[in-house]
Design a protein around this nucleic acid. Sequence first.
DNA 1: GCTTTTAGTGTAGTATTGACACAATTTAAA
DNA 2: TTTAAATTGTGTCAATACTACACTAAAAGC
Lengths: 234, 234
Amino acid sequence: MNNYPQASRILVAIDCIIFGFDGKDIKLLLIKRNFEPEKGKWSLMGGFLNAEEDLADGAVRILYNLTGLKDIYVEQLETFGKADRDPGERTVSVVFFALIKIDDHDSEAVKSHNAAWITLDARPKLIFDHEQMVGRAIEHLKYNAALHPIGFELLPERFTIPQLQKLYEAIYNIPIDRRNFSRKLLSTGLLIDTGQKNNNSATKKATLYKLDAERYKTKFHSFWNFMPDSMKSQ
Amino acid sequence: MNNYPQASRILVAIDCIIFGFDGKDIKLLLIKRNFEPEKGKWSLMGGFLNAEEDLADGAVRILYNLTGLKDIYVEQLETFGKADRDPGERTVSVVFFALIKIDDHDSEAVKSHNAAWITLDARPKLIFDHEQMVGRAIEHLKYNAALHPIGFELLPERFTIPQLQKLYEAIYNIPIDRRNFSRKLLSTGLLIDTGQKNNNSATKKATLYKLDAERYKTKFHSFWNFMPDSMKSQ
DNA sequence: GCTTTTAGTGTAGTATTGACACAATTTAAA
DNA sequence: TTTAAATTGTGTCAATACTACACTAAAAGC
């Protein structure tokens, strides 16, 4: 069966940008390639879309291979399709954006792929157009963390408000007023006080919160601001 | 040269969602296929990515074919890649989102493609997953028109505030208070009073404005609201 | 029990938003 | 040529949200 005899068949790659947060810095999971092509250079984790595989499944597969995690936050980001972007062969790459709880990943899998968590500032040059992809992803993170409660995806199940604040300060690289941040956050109604305290602290222990999963789903868009109130729920 | 002998080569399609506004309703430019496959059914305008063509150029080519326009507002929206989405052959489709000034299009080109402007409510069933694509595009339009000044792309070069308000009311399907809308809009500093009046009106003639192109570029993100002020300019 | 560090909350001034009413312009009909 | 109908343009007040800022509380180390 060939309905489109004249059209070109092209390699479709999947590349994954994986963000983590160690309590201080935003980090990227990058691999130092121990395979060809571009062996020895740094790149994003990637692979090719299989002939009978759904695109989203391909992303999950590749993320699972590297992190050992299945239920992680993934969004499709953008498809890169410059004709010459891969000098080996014409390849279109669909880039996925993932946020993971950094302590959950399978460090064996990461080691076997020769991967490492690297801060944004310290990141090496990457192959092909992967640098552009990362730039786009950072932009997306900044943009979306301002509008939707995705920051939680980078924190442990139970987290404190100061942790969340440090995360936002890392994303935007600015200091945030503690009191205003806390007030705005609590007013979303997304946090549930677990009654527990954070024992990691050497001084006053902060309250541990968890996400209200129900509200999280229904109020995913609640950071919106320009919309008339009647639209915010849609 | 074949660096990736084991990977699958796949058809890469480009599908375009084209929005227009006639002063009253948001409309989609759809084609009634006079070619195989799915001849006689309605679909989005599309085509295949050529072997040596940049992805973005492919979108521009396809949009030009249908509308006769070159400088239109285009964003890449999302790539659809379910394995079975095209029953003819495995095809990944990159969907583009375009906003055009409806009076500018080349009606000969539209006619020769058997295309028509159809309101969102009246749209027919579409082939494959094109229905989903349109749904995603409408969502994107609602979301982005609230955050960025993209509405202007659907209006003539010179437009009135009441026209713009009708556009927003059509996008969100809600009534908007004239006074508050006007105040918020003018406060963006994006509008330049041309000194002219709209002669189409049968009653009081509204002031014609044009976009301040400079400010439009630098303040494209100025509808943001959750971000700290220091970030809004970035 | 004193010091240091971090967490948690309150308040007052300012800016933005939403709800609302009236005046001005234009055409067409009386 | 006045009057009515439709539409545009602007002002005000109250409620809300935001910003800037200061004090109290808890925990650990000395």
